[in-house]
């Protein structure tokens, strides 16, 4: 088990998941498989330099869906170059961008299948925010 993650318990962390979502929350619990429990979680949607937050509550994340866990010092304001907007104003752009990404992914998988290869990503056309 890596030494430094347990030191982050009770600190705010940024968690990127394998399906491209970003959760921000207080780390409350962690085990050797990096399953984690976050409290006071928000999911942040980012499109270009605009962002919106969705409150999620508490969240258990299974280790295999976690990509990175990052710790940003509370003195650093990472949103100063970005503009906070209402969720309703962002949702359309965000949906469009994610749909475009998904279509590219499906095209890539088809292209690989033609060559007899298997795409190792997760294709989920029924994705949701």
């Amino acid at each position: 088990m890596t030494q430094r993650l347990p030191e982050l318990v009770d600190y705010q962390v940024y968690v990127d998941t394998r399906d491209g979502k970003l959760y921000i929350g207080t780390l409350r619990s962690i085990d050797e498989n990096v399953n984690i429990i976050l409290e006071a979680v928000i999911q942040r949607l980012i499109v270009k330099n605009k962002f919106a937050d969705i409150p999620v509550g508490s969240l258990f994340l299974r280790g295999d869906s976690i990509c990175t866990i990052s710790y940003v010092s509370s003195q650093t304001d990472i949103t100063k170059k970005m503009e906070r907007v209402e969720l309703g104003d962002l949702i359309e752009d965000y949906t469009a961008e994610r749909t475009r990404e998904k279509q590219n992914e499906i095209r890539l998988a088809e292209h690989l299948a033609e060559k007899g290869l298997i795409y190792e990503g997760q294709i989920d056309p029924q994705w949701s925010i």
């Binding site: 993650l5 970003l22 270009k48 976690i66 990509c67 990175t68 990052s70 710790y71 940003v72 970005m82």
Partner: peptide, 25 residues
């Protein structure tokens, strides 16, 4: 001391003091 390709949705990685990367990903 993390650097990323200039992308807005990864700005938190650049600002981070350190990041943990899960081996399986």
């Amino acid at each position: 001391n993390v650097e990323t390709r200039e992308q807005q949705d990864q700005i938190h990685l650049e600002a981070a003091k350190f990041i943990f990367v899960r081996g399986s990903t």
